[in-house]
Structures are given as C-alpha cells and as structure tokens.
Amino acid sequence: MLSRRHFSNRGEALADDRRTDGDELDRRIADAKAAQDRGISASEARAEGRGWAIGIEFVGTVLVSAFLGWLLDGWLGTSPWLMILFLLLGFAAGTRRAMTTSKQFDASPDNDQSDKGA
C-alpha cells in the first residue's frame, strides 16, 4: 500500500516535470545568460581594445614624429631644433589622430550602442 502510493506520487512528479519542461528550459537559459553577463562581455572587451588603441595612437604619433625630427637633425646637422619642432608637431598630429580614430570607431556600426544601458 505504502509502496504503491509512493509509486503513484513519483508518476505525478514525472508528469509535473514534463508539464514544466518549457519553463525549466527558460529558467536555465536565463541563468546561463546571467552567468555570462557577470564576466566581461564581447562588446566590452572590444570597447576596451578600442580605448587602448586610441591611447597608443597618440603616444605613437608623438614618438614617431620626434624620431623623424631626430633623423633629419642627424642628416642636416641642426640638432636639436628639428627634433623639438617635430615633437611639437607630433603633439598636434597625435591629438588629431586620436580624434579621427575615435570618430571612426564611433562611426563603425560594430560599436554596440545597445550595451550602454546595461
């Protein structure tokens, strides 16, 4: 008697499981999504990459300009004036580069605006 009731209970539980299968799947999908959101999302990683890219753009342009000035100084024997001039021009060029690059990144549809609210 006891075992029979137990059995029928299990049967009910099974039927119950089957009924809520859809809800269960929804819950698991939501859980998995939440777990994924806890880490760094792909778009956040890309955004970070782009941020660093702009920084190096600026520094690199200044360094390359100064180096060009230094090279010209060596050829023309005007040390250190051309290096100083090119260093200053490099600052201008670097600022411009950083501006245009960030503008280009913004214009790229790859830029996930949807993620900003999250």
């Binding site: 690199g60 360094l63 090119f86 060029a93 670097g94």
Partner: peptide, 17 residues
Amino acid sequence: FIEFLSFLSRPFTLAIR
C-alpha cells in the same frame, strides 16, 4: 604637414600596439 606626419606614423603605431 601634420596630417602627413600622422599618416607616416600609422604603420609604427599599428606595430607598437
């Protein structure tokens, strides 16, 4: 001239990064 400088520095910044 400034634009030219920044154009020339492109391969270097790409490589250095």
